[in-house]
Write a protein that binds this DNA or RNA. Structure first.
Lengths: 132, 132
DNA sequence: ATTCTAGTTTATAATGATTCTAAAAAAGTG
DNA sequence: CACTTTTTTAGAATCATTATAAACTAGAAT
């Protein structure tokens, strides 16, 4: 399994559950935007093994901490995660409640002119809300 | 009271509770970033009248719908609101968990080059995360 | 391989923000 | 005042997320 080493190198034991969640999350062509709930559904369909909801939460948070996932800042009652951890932006379709990737080339350069003493910029994220 | 007409014009009855919440929200010099919980605390301190939590929620949502408040897209278990409804952006200090306004003049123009058929852009919001 | 230990999984309970409910109160209208 | 509609309210219900504590497992040591 290709994820065993990746997990070990991060200090995470490559358990059956983590490896299966890796498959669901990372064996794909395109970026995956998801809520924990949606991920749970996908796991149910794709895997012949029940994974506890608590484990899904634990794993997603562990992966986020290690930098394999990131949260998408958006106002929703559920937390959204993204398998694309590079700097990039999003459309959010308010009607369908769906996220759409904006590649970096889809957004002109962003200039932050204000500085805060003693702080440095970690990330710049743009959320473009869409309506009909 | 200066808020009576404003409320009436929006189709909201100027009740005692709404007027008091208006005072807490809008009788200030600077932009106010808050969660419902923080707002409730401020109301308790500032007003000699108990306002039910349900009313605070109702009122904040009513004001948001009328465009007097807006939500700030950020990942937090609590929803953040902003009394500054003009197009503007935020710093988010990861360490202190504090929001800081970025005036429009603090951010260069943002060009969204991608279009989605049948959808139009409602808002463009930038979140700049800060670290030490 | 067997034993040991720390890390992991799990079902379930607990928490906490938000929404719902339905009855009482207040606002606006004639 | 009488009437209708909107608003407020306390408390219940909901729903995402986190905590708990017991059972399990991976990796290391013996």
């Amino acid at each position: 399994m290709k994820y065993i080493e990746k997990l070990r190198n991060s200090g995470l034991r490559p358990t059956k559950q983590r490896l299966q969640i890796c498959e669901v999350l990372f064996d794909r062509d395109k970026t995956f935007h998801f809520t924990i709930n949606e991920l749970e559904q996908k796991i149910k369909k794709q895997i012949n093994n029940k994974i506890s909801l608590a484990t899904v939460y634990n794993t997603v948070h562990a992966f986020e901490k290690k930098g394999y996932l990131k949260q998408i800042p958006i106002n929703s009652n559920q937390t959204y995660f993204d398998t694309n951890v590079t700097d990039h932006h999003h459309f959010y379709d308010l009607k369908d409640e769906k996220l759409i990737d904006l590649e970096n080339s889809d957004v002109g350069p962003i200039n932050i002119l204000k500085k805060i003493d003693g702080k440095k910029i970690k990330s710049v994220e743009v959320l473009v809300k869409l309506e009909d």
